[in-house]
Amino acid sequence: MDVNMTYATQDIWTWWLAIYLYFGGLGAATLAVTFLTDMYLKPHRHLVIWGAGAGVVLLALGSLMLFGHLLDKTAVLNVLNPMILFRKPDAWIAWGTQFIIWMMVWGVLYALPYVRETDFPRKVPGLRNLIDRPFVVTIGTLVQRFHYTVGWLAVINGVGVAVYTGLLLQSFPAVALWHNPAVPLLFTVSAFSTAMAFLLLLMYTLINDQADEYIRVLYERIDLVLIAAELVILFSLYQYLKNGSESGVRSLELLWNDYGWLIGFIGFGLIVPFVLELKGVIKGWATRVPIITASILVLTGGYLLRYYFMYAGVYAYPW
């Protein structure tokens, strides 16, 4: 019966799901990195506000992508209830939804005391009245008292979101490209790498402060290691796909014969930024342009990875 197999890619989850995965990983990892920096490296109001803002805005946009494609939008209430984890502990979307919700909740709470100290929110009509309300002031005081607890709750949920994006794809057993342990690892590493790139971009442009130089150097070094790890995982994935199931071989052919993947993602999304950041770490750059360029390339590569992954998954049908 397997003499006449049909191989097919899917058009169910496409570019929009790639945006969900990309924004999910990027937003969550950015939040986690900024909160850890604030807790253990240097208290940094601007980074926390940007981190929490990115976490909430990107996750909201990404979730909207998924929400917009639901067949029955009212039934989403079933998965928003935290008790769903007791009914469906094996469903990664259930875990992901809860991680996203609680990351946003703890993220906003963690940033609240900083937001109250900042001028900008006080200029926004409505927000000024809100952050000065007695119950908000009380919550802010409580958050300051339990600074580390709230921070870690946000970080744990953020890491959960980043890992979940890969675990979701891994849970589809028919497609060799997705159903292997490299995928959650690759997506997690990529999420943190894009977060580092996003923060470097931010710290070389909008919150450019010379006093943050050691943070920038640390982020560059971490990003360098993460890009190297991503290249190693991709090499392992290539080895895994080239011999094994026909589904894997076909995915490999789709990806490694595509210039968008090969030159766009691996070339400009990984290798070029790796070289730029390596020189920055070893010898340094006279200007900030190369690191800004590297950051933009890493951010673009992060989306390309997820986009190509969605399109290159191959199903093998025995008819």
Partner: peptide, 13 residues
């Protein structure tokens, strides 16, 4: 109960 996320369609071989 189904919200139509289509994950089942992705998972079905």
């Amino acid at each position: 109960l189904c919200m139509g996320c289509r994950a089942c369609a992705m998972a079905c071989p």
